[in-house]
């Protein structure tokens, strides 16, 4: 039970489930959240090691969810990787970094690149 725990947050089911599936294949424990509220609930219930956060969510913006997680000292240590269809150099990226995202991936993201980034982030933690 030493698998790294990843929470995948994305309102687009196919994309979210593909990520979850591939991460499980790659040996991660994965939980999924389809919106900001679910993500916050999941974070409160079971502390994940990494969150793959889509920034465009139907209820609470991914940036805001990240800000709240970082604001709570119990969850502040969780690494949040932003995942967005927007480019990595625009406003979205700046706001995500300001909210506390540790890194930034652009959709479509090669699955291996995603896994590599999660491993890199976790390696930093170790």
């Amino acid at each position: 039970m030493n698998k790294p725990f990843v929470l995948v947050v994305d309102d687009y089911a196919d994309s979210r489930e593909m990520c979850a599936e591939y991460l499980e294949v790659c040996g991660f424990r994965v939980e999924q959240a389809a919106d900001g509220a679910q993500a916050l609930a999941c974070v409160a219930a079971a502390l994940p090691d990494v969150i793959l956060m889509d920034l465009t969510l139907p209820d609470i913006d991914g940036t805001e969810v990240t800000r709240r997680i970082k604001a709570d000292e119990r969850t502040a240590g969780i690494k949040v990787i932003a995942l967005t269809g927007h480019g990595s150099t625009g406003d979205h990226a700046d706001r995500a970094r300001a909210a506390g995202c540790v890194s930034f991936l652009t959709k479509p993201c090669h699955p291996d690149a995603m896994v590599d980034e999660i491993r890199r982030v976790l390696g930093e933690k170790a």
Partner: peptide, 23 residues
Amino acid sequence: MSHELRTPLNAILGYTHMLLNKV
């Protein structure tokens, strides 16, 4: 629009990759 296009493309590329990787 490009953002909206990227998200489904993410799923397509991901699953194709998994299929090609014999998952």
